[in-house]
Design a protein around this nucleic acid. Sequence first.
DNA 1: GTAGGGTTAG
Length: 747
Amino acid sequence: MLKLLSGGRLLPNCKSNYFPKPFCSIRYLHISSYSTVPNYIQISSNESGSNDQGIDIDLLFHSSTNAHLAKCLHALLIVLGKVQSLFISTRLLNLYSNLGLEWDVFVAASLVHMYCRFGLFDAAYQIFTNMPYRDMGCWNAIISGFCQNGKGEKALEVLDEMKLEGIKMDSVTVSTILPVCAQLDDMVQGRLTHLYVIKHGLEHDLFVGNAFINFYAKFGEVEHAQKVFDSMVIRDLISWNSIIAAYEQNNNPDYALNFFNKMQMDGFKPDLLTIVSIASSIAQSRDSQSSRCVHGFIQRRCWFEKDVIIGNAVVDMYAKLGDADSARKLFDKILLKDVVSWNTMITGYGQNGLANEAIDVYHTMVEIEHVTPNQGTLASILPAYAHIGALKEGTTTHGRVLKTGQLLDVFIGTCLIDLYGKCGDMEDTMKLFYEVPKTSSVPWNAVISCLGIHGHGETSLKLFRNMLDDGVQPDTITFISLLSACSHSGLVEQGEWCFNVMQNDYGIKPSLKHYGCLVDLLGRAGQLEKAYNFIKNMPLQPDASVWGALLGACRIHGNADLGKLASDRLLEVDPDNVGYYVLLSNIYANAGKWDGVNRVRSLANSKGLKKTPGWSSIEINNKMEVFYTGNYSHPQCDQIYEELENLMTKMKILGYIPDYSFVLQDVEEDEKQHILISHSERLAIAYGIINTPARTPIRIFKNLRVCGDCHTATKFISRITEREIIVRDSNRFHNFKDGVCSCGDYW
DNA sequence: GTAGGGTTAG
């Protein structure tokens, strides 16, 4: 039995909410008596009883002939969830004014809040402005109503209104608006609020403190968050969770784990949200061992069944640790998956280079499980399409999701820029770029990088200047994109300029990736000694990418001695990468040092190196075909090899000589020729020639770099077939036409 | 009427 007072307050279980979940249980309520005793209504809870449909609201309105009855009716309507209707609320207003009643502040404030919850902001504001007087609760009700329902700007307007009326914020107001300041990126407002809080002695309020920890964390100011945490007189679990999340979200997993221990020493037991942050911290600190502990911890408490969020967090943890299999196993065990679960799994596969698996999961999600994809889904699946060059499939998916009412935001916009750019469509890339909001560096970085892989280094630099003119702060990735763009276009001076500007003007310390780019830049341009000296003077320990850049440059410029040196270092840091053996063998071969070639070959063979399987893909009639090197299982296999043999004959007439230094296997020459023509890019090209009309362009995607022999061969093929052949490999674009490549053999 | 969470771009 529930008892409702005329003010509308629901008595039992009335925690801090005015009307706790009035709508959830409404099915089981029916009115046992509409009391004529004017100060309460009785409602009995009866699960098998009738629902509210038997209530004659018209009759109730007509019978409400005095103030008490009007308030009872009002309360009843709130409990029944009827006040969400503007029609009913207008009738209520009329009833109140007909009876000469003022709005009850308490009811009105609750109504305001409820309207906001249903997105009826105008109605809420209307009631609010019509209130005869407003106490603190009213102001907080409308402000929090707006805040929690995505109307942050509106909330701040009301806050200004409140200040104009000379009303001071209390701790509730402060805790309400801080998340909004963070969401609106309004650091200034938050800082001013902090001053206000100190001035008015609100800083020791628990809610205020917690809100500030989260506020500063969102702006990356962990030190401030820490100061707030330190100064707190009382701390609760939320305070601890907030400081742990602050470190976790600002890439300081060690501190997060540290506070996790401290918190337990202080006698606080972690809850679900603590563990969510800890799972993410473990992923960041790449601590595979602890990942199992967390998994066990959750399992022992049966928290996987409690809330889907924890399962999602652990799936994400495994995926980020590179363990896609464990992620999938857990994912399959989540019974009630939500859209984030699917997105996490798709992203997880994508981040581990398993684009096809990611696409499979997406299809299961949409076609079998009928889950409606959201923006996060697009942001997860589009990079997977970009990875294998599935432009048509990507854009079709994008179109389909748009139909479900999703808008183009910065995330999706940037994914699309990347997709179009990586698939070679620079025109659409630029079109999109101009449509996307460009307040952060991310879309700029994407377009700079895409222009770079197309060899438009000058345009990349121009966009960089535009970016600075627009007042957008460049970050480390901006400079990686720029340096690699300069490198692809041979813009040595400009690249060096970028490297200096990055450090001197933006205080960004170069990472190994930056060093790798610069070595690549100098090396490709033939300044091998300079590149080598540069490596020797690096303050960081050079890794495989740095030495690999030097080795690649040595191959281009035929420097066997430096190449040997670079590969020796490489075999120390990354001994199992077969690509380096191929490069070195090729360097020796070009220099005519056949004993060197043999040495490298036998070394590679003795190690029994597992190659990264090379694959190339081509999209024909909206369908992706993926060819692995040496594939013989394709239905058109015979036709493909026949085509390649035919081409080989014609190529040889035109002067093509196969370059066997790219073949590491120790086999006869015939066999070597066969190995070369079964490289995945050639299979894909032949498949394209067979299945598309004559003289139309062919677009190929390759996961590794195009080998030197295939590069030469493709030039001949483009001449023989009179086709434009566009190959995007892991490094850049090659546009073959009339026997030449756009990269000018500079790659 | 108030504070904390998982996925998402280069």
